[in-house]
Design a protein around this nucleic acid. Structure first.
Lengths: 351, 351
DNA sequence: CTGAATGCTGGTAACGTTCCCACACCTGAC
DNA sequence: GTCAGGTGTGGGAACGTTACCAGCATTCAG
């Protein structure tokens, strides 16, 4: 609170202290090659003494680079996206760049407003997970950007970073199969979301490879929320089936909802019902039983997105689409039906 | 991707289009009073046509205001802090200001680095929840700031925004008492954290008011994590006690850990053990049973912090400390011992 | 001993905006 | 007809930085 009023020193102050011109001071501070070593030291010392700090605003104005990057995600309160944000932040900091994080809250209008705020703040580029269905906002954006997450598919020409859904689905289905659940029931997102189609396509492909007819797959749709998962599970439970019920949910929130619905129906997990999630959110560790799930590499995605954005800004040959592998997090929500004596009721799937 | 290369129009372009000088154009754009209405319209139209957008970098350089605010919190992946961030963001956006969010990850060195990054980015001020114990970093910061959260106590001279711990503790203890748990066991944070002392002090005060000797209170310390809560609960269970065990945890994460420890010990909640949390994180809704807790007003805290920071920046008389009320979120982790027939075992507390 | 090349430095012009001052024009009063 | 006052406009400087160009020694080849 002490020297809050004092004007912050400029490069001219430093130059005066060191007894050189501001050009020379600038060269010393920028680490330019054509400068006498002794002079450089003198300037650097003067800068340290004066408490000089380069004014990024002035630099930005002169160079056209603000040193700011934007990140627009659907929900900062979702730990997965927070993880992405942290990865991006850390990577950006390495290059002395700051990150403007905006949460669109799944609202296309809010997203457009954020994009416009990023333009006004003169960011050098942005990382975006678009919730809007229209290309217009992105077209209007007019700055370099990289897409992140599954919606990248709609924009084939822009570089993007996402998780490898096909690999993740294979991982999940293989693990399920190992435990004796060959054709699990599916809880998917809303038909309007693109991620749903991709998830389903991967499941189909995997079935074909294993000589399983995809037509026997039973599935329900729901919102990507706990409530959506609970409702979908209730519908699933109303359908006729015998024996143990295995469910692969497209999202951890839905998986948790499904777990609740099962309990409400008097079924216990994993004895009567096996549930596999997808995302890897921390809350999955706190449910009873712990949720077995496929974790997306959120932090890594953030890092790679920033690196891709740097390439995009520098105009380096674009790296195209990156798909990062997911990993299995094994907890306790899956019954092992493959062992000699079936847990409680035999058989997987339906009649 | 189309017009990405095109130079963005400046106020001079707008002035040329409208056939006026840049001074006049600036007046029109700024909404200054001393300008002909017709001229203003012409300029505004020209600006719209040109797709003009004011360059915040240049404005910032001229005015000394960057239009940027900083927010430094311990953990962006913690939903409570994410909630704070969102509130702050929304409020800042109303004043056409953007927010730089930094997560210190409970690391004092990282925090210092972030503070320095904020200075470099030339933010107009910052909202900080300091994890560092030293005043030095904050003193060195040299820009207007507002403290957020419980650590504000160490800095009596700066304005701050926090939750009303005393009110929250009273709310929790009253609710516990209503259910028949008069002197609950306590799970507290590490002794080094200031929030612990404040929490404990509020509990003592409440006891004194109710003629309960604070000395009979049993407590354990732990890290503010799930694991910390589990360990603390294990120690609590090892102590001799009879009947139903009621626990008030200083943090939801710890409460969830305590719940796990109880289950691992073969005790069921809420039949054998009652647990009350503090924070209001979403994960508390997904545990079995749902965690009854005291929710802090994260979003509101973010909003008020930004407003306080605006005051601080403008040099308006500081509003001092603000303590926002918390609210009870009742779920299912508390047994009701007050009804006619005690649930299973009678009596609250210990021998 | 001259000319060019090299190493280092200083001056100055931008970048886009806002603010201050000056000026031109008009109106109305003396 | 002149002067004071108001209204609207234009010109320039400034903010702090970087990039470019010119200048000054010094050195070295011819």
């Amino acid at each position: 609170m002490s020297k809050r009023g004092g004007r912050r020193p400029t490069i001219i102050d430093v130059a005066a202290r060191a007894g050189v011109s501001k050009s020379t001071a600038a060269r010393a501070l920028a680490g330019a090659p054509n400068i006498n070593a002794e002079t450089r030291e003198r300037v650097l010392k003067a800068a340290r003494l004066a408490g000089y700090e380069r004014n990024h605003l002035a630099v930005g104005m002169r160079s056209g680079r603000s040193g700011l990057l934007g990140l627009v995600i659907p929900d900062i309160a979702n730990p997965f996206w927070a993880d992405v944000a942290r990865g991006a932040q850390d990577r950006a900091a390495q290059n002395d760049v700051s990150l403007l994080v905006f949460s669109s809250d799944w609202d296309a209008a809010k997203e457009a407003a954020h994009l416009s705020a990023l333009r006004r703040a003169r960011v050098d580029g942005a990382i975006i997970n678009p919730v809007s269905d229209s290309f217009d906002d992105l077209d209007r954006f007019g700055l370099p950007f990289v897409l992140i997450g599954s919606s990248a598919e709609r924009f084939p020409d822009t570089s993007s970073v996402g998780s490898d859904i096909a690999q993740a689905v294979r991982l999940g289905l293989d693990h399920l199969a190992e435990k004796g659940h060959v054709a699990p029931n599916l809880i998917l997102g809303p038909k309007s979301r693109l991620a749903r189609a991709r998830f389903l396509r991967s499941v189909h492909q995997h079935c074909v490879e294993r000589d399983i007819d995809p037509a026997i797959l039973v599935m329900e749709d729901g919102e990507y929320t706990v409530e959506g998962g609970r409702l979908a599970m209730q519908r699933l439970l109303k359908r006729p089936h015998v024996g143990h019920l295995a469910v692969f949910a497209a999202n951890d929130m839905m998986a948790i909802g499904a777990m609740m619905a099962a309990r409400e129906a008097g079924l216990s997990c994993p004895e009567d019902v096996s549930i596999l999630g997808f995302d890897g959110i921390p809350a999955g560790a706190f449910t009873t039983p712990g949720l077995t799930t496929i974790a997306k590499p959120g932090r890594e995605m953030g890092i790679r997105a920033v690196e891709g954005l740097f390439d995009e800004i520098e105009g380096r040959p674009e790296h195209g689409r990156i798909h990062l592998p997911c990993r299995l997090v094994e907890r306790a929500s899956l019954a092992d039906l493959s062992v000699g004596t079936p847990q409680r009721k035999a058989g997987a799937g339906r009649i």
